[in-house]
Design a protein around this nucleic acid. Sequence first.
DNA 1: TTGTAGGCGTTATCAT
DNA 2: ATGATAACGCCTACAA
Lengths: 360, 360
Amino acid sequence: MTDTTKNSSKNAARSRRGTNRVTMDDVAARARVSASSVSLFLRNPEAVSARIAPRIKRAIEVLGYVPNKLAGSLAAARTRAIGVVVPALGNAFFAETVAAMQSEFDRHGYQLLLGASEYDLEREAELVRAFLSWSPTALVVTGCHHNEATHTLLRQANVPVVEMWETGEQPFDLQVGFSHRAVGEALAAHLHGLGARRIAFIGARMEKDMRAGQRRDGFCDWFKARGIDALAINQPVEASPTAGGAALNAALDAMPDLQAVACSNDVMALGVLFEAQRLGIAVPDRLAVTGFGDLPFSQACVPSLTTIEPRASVIGLRIAQELLARLDAEAQGEDAPEPKVVDVAFELMVRDSSRRGPAD
Amino acid sequence: MTDTTKNSSKNAARSRRGTNRVTMDDVAARARVSASSVSLFLRNPEAVSARIAPRIKRAIEVLGYVPNKLAGSLAAARTRAIGVVVPALGNAFFAETVAAMQSEFDRHGYQLLLGASEYDLEREAELVRAFLSWSPTALVVTGCHHNEATHTLLRQANVPVVEMWETGEQPFDLQVGFSHRAVGEALAAHLHGLGARRIAFIGARMEKDMRAGQRRDGFCDWFKARGIDALAINQPVEASPTAGGAALNAALDAMPDLQAVACSNDVMALGVLFEAQRLGIAVPDRLAVTGFGDLPFSQACVPSLTTIEPRASVIGLRIAQELLARLDAEAQGEDAPEPKVVDVAFELMVRDSSRRGPAD
DNA sequence: TTGTAGGCGTTATCAT
DNA sequence: ATGATAACGCCTACAA
């Protein structure tokens, strides 16, 4: 009997804990071929002769062999894994993007490593560092604002870096998102077109959620450029209908003849709708309301909510596609392409909550 | 000059693609110590003398060393990674659980590998197989129903297996969730207590979403045991307010004097509320409505929605805690503990949509 | 406390 | 087409 397994312990003085998992050598022994052939077969079944292919296949099945990706990745110096950093997983937007990305990457045999930064740039840096230690194929981070440490890591990493959900200056390799200032401007233009002049932008935790802050800035600046001062309300709590209702009251205190309110997202906007109903303020007749996100309830609520549809899943899909194409090109020996910005845009969904002018 | 790096290529006939990444040897050379000292320092900084510790620390910083987890995990035969399979990432419930789990595992240095089965048991098996090839520390899957392949893999895996979001018979190692039949029964008892006798349960894709199906079964069986036949409506589309509205109409067609409708989740319920308003059916006076999930809008909508709060984040947290405790115990040399079922329960949130009896 | 060397399970190179 | 064998970067038993 030729026993070639590493467990044969030829008087092993320095013996090692045997993982006792089925290895490629085991498969090779069972199929009476070399490990190299098994490895080859696994990567390209056509490359081995029709005589031994079935033997290998059989051995794999019989032994229930599961390749060890750690060893494989170490040897090949590349890991089929993509590190993804999002601010929060509970956030429906990012969840949707991650879902789309995962689905597409999965089809191509890539694993997703996931981390949440909790809107904290230090955490982001730690996560990036942690991901890097896995030698990932690529890294995906949220937004274009990172601290010094993250910048350094990302630059040294020598792997494609994708920034998502936001477009901005100086892309590392790829940016897939849209301009949140443009969102704010679109909402401003829409409400202004309705005749609204006494307006407010309300949000929650906008000092941390920079994209919401950018929407607010785009909104307020657009009005300011036309000589109108928009009120900006920021609740120091997580976004919720309750926070939205409170923000509406705060806005009404400061500006009793408010005609329109743009909310940092749909959840806040829903709270505004409910609070307005409670206060007997007709929407949209006396108050126009807009949101952001086009969440499931937005088109179903009464009145239906004017909002921005952010194409979260398109972002995820495009990231995967662009990245896969880039990796493919690289495999063909092509040079690293220029940094690229993909603007997936967004759509203003005008619905009943801002259908008619508030001054009618 | 003592050049001990592996790149010194002493007439390397069999040279290998150098990753040219900074390795532990580089750090060791820079700090003028051996690699094992660096390794030791990394794992337990106290264990190394105060003389060389700062040298190592400095070298790590100067060189920007990032440990290679692939090599480390391969050598140590364990990977600080947890494989997680959820049906869908876009689903807010699972997203919340994953978020909580990720947060807790992250604090302990574990990576999350994420996969979505799309409610497909075959996909689940593939994902489990893929995760296994990473030699994860543990595996977390959703629900207690798996196909044969998954069962085999999970049993052979030799790693702790957690089933979440559902309790049932024959746990592998750990189940953290609650009984969905009990949810259905609780809702049934609540509505029955209100005096409702003409009732319906509406849902979407319940043949694939087995947990929703269990809620329906618990609901219908509870009534059946009391001689009441509940109507069950299943929409063949993804759950949405629109689907909920359509389901309500279908229910009213079949049972015009409907007194109460339990929905498979809050999104469906919201659609029912809106559709009822549209139809001029007073809620709760003429029709009581309940949901499942306690989504953000549920307590804010008008009327506020009676629903079930599923404690999604508690599930994630408990999984992490139980698993970490188990791993700790194992590290102490303790034997594998008995399979355990953790029922995190749920809470019935009675709100306005079912506050008064429909027969008042 | 520090260093030495063997092994973890693959992939890749080269020779047959 | 197939097989030896050297990396891959680190951990760890053991010796010093």
